[in-house]
């Protein structure tokens, strides 16, 4: 009896803890969403009540009078091109390292792995000088190159693990049939590591989409700002209109939250890929 009552209490405590944590996460996000439909007067007068109506005025203000849509577009461009470039160049390098025996192969993979330990933020000064001389300051292309380069080590690391595990018979039989190395890679081997490409893509896409530091240093003109950086400008301009600010945050969070909810399993697997062996 004693034991049973104890177990019951433990279960109760467990659910109180889990549900409490859930509320602590969801309630602030819910309040952000709701406050975006409110006017300043409502936010001040009735902060916790639901909005009187699903009033979209704040969103209209954002869409028509601010640069937030532009920031969203820029972030999408930078993220999509960086991840595409990253997966293509990363797959090529990982393929060479893991599917061929050649002199210096170990040196080459060490070279890629060394990049894992270098925090590029701390090299921002020389990087700035270099980007300036290359004409890549205040240029989305500059961000794309930086993001691709700094994400390559982890990508090569993740992909070569998967590529190495593929059986050699597959390519041998294709080779006997006279298929070219390129065809073997593109048509036989790479399709087999699609799950790894998704993991490596998410692992790097989320931090690229969310990044604030590199645009802060490299982007100057409003048309080139990305989302995270652009929000600081937006907050400066609308600092007294709380409804618009909440709506702006909701809008900024929306794309990644939607993708996350649809693909939560892959996101969790992808983002924890570096920390789970």
């Amino acid at each position: 009896m004693e034991h049973r009552r104890n177990a019951g209490l433990e279960t109760w405590l467990m659910y109180i803890f889990l549900i409490g944590s859930t509320i602590a996460v969801l309630y602030p996000i819910f309040m952000m969403l709701m406050s975006g439909f409110k006017t300043n007067a409502e936010i001040f007068g009735a902060p916790f009540s639901l909005p009187k109506s699903l009033n979209l005025d704040n969103y209209k203000t954002i869409w028509t009078t601010t640069d937030v849509p532009r920031y969203l577009l820029n972030s999408a461009i930078v993220t999509i091109i960086s991840v595409a470039l990253l997966l293509v160049t990363g797959t090529m390098a990982a393929y060479a390292i893991s599917r061929y025996k050649f002199r210096g192969a170990i040196m080459v993979s060490m070279f890629f792995l060394a990049g894992l330990m270098l925090p590029l933020r701390l090299a921002i000064i020389p990087l700035f000088v270099q980007m300036k001389s290359m004409g890549l300051v205040d240029n989305l292309l500059g961000l794309i190159f930086i993001y691709t380069a700094m994400s390559l080590p982890s990508t090569v690391f993740i992909l070569s693990g998967f590529l190495r595990a593929l059986p050699g018979e597959l390519e041998d039989s294709a080779r006997v049939d006279g298929a070219s190395e390129l065809r073997i890679m593109v048509e036989i081997m790479v399709p087999l590591i699609t799950p790894a490409l998704v993991i490596a893509g998410i692992y790097n896409a989320v931090p690229i989409w969310n990044d604030f530091f590199f645009p802060l240093i490299f982007i100057q003109t409003p048309e080139n700002r990305t989302l995270a950086q652009g929000l600081t400008t937006f907050f400066g301009e609308y600092s007294v209109n709380f409804g618009v600010l909440y709506a702006g945050l909701t809008l900024a969070a929306l794309p990644i939250v939607v993708v996350f909810i649809i693909q939560s399993r892959r996101f969790i697997a992808g983002m924890t890929a570096g920390a789970i062996k």
């Binding site: 293509v88 160049t89 990363g90 090529m92 390098a93 393929y95 060479a96 390292i97 080459v108 070279f111 890629f112 990049g115 270098l118 590029l120 701390l122 090299a123 921002i124 020389p126 990087l127 000088v129 270099q130 190159f145 930086i146 691709t148 380069a149 700094m150 390559l152 080590p153 090569v156």
Partner: peptide, 19 residues
């Protein structure tokens, strides 16, 4: 296969870190 990735890494990570 190796050149594009190596070039990106050298130019945008290793050279700045060394500098």
């Amino acid at each position: 296969l190796l050149t594009p990735a190596a070039l990106l890494l050298i130019v945008f990570v290793f050279i700045p870190m060394g500098s």
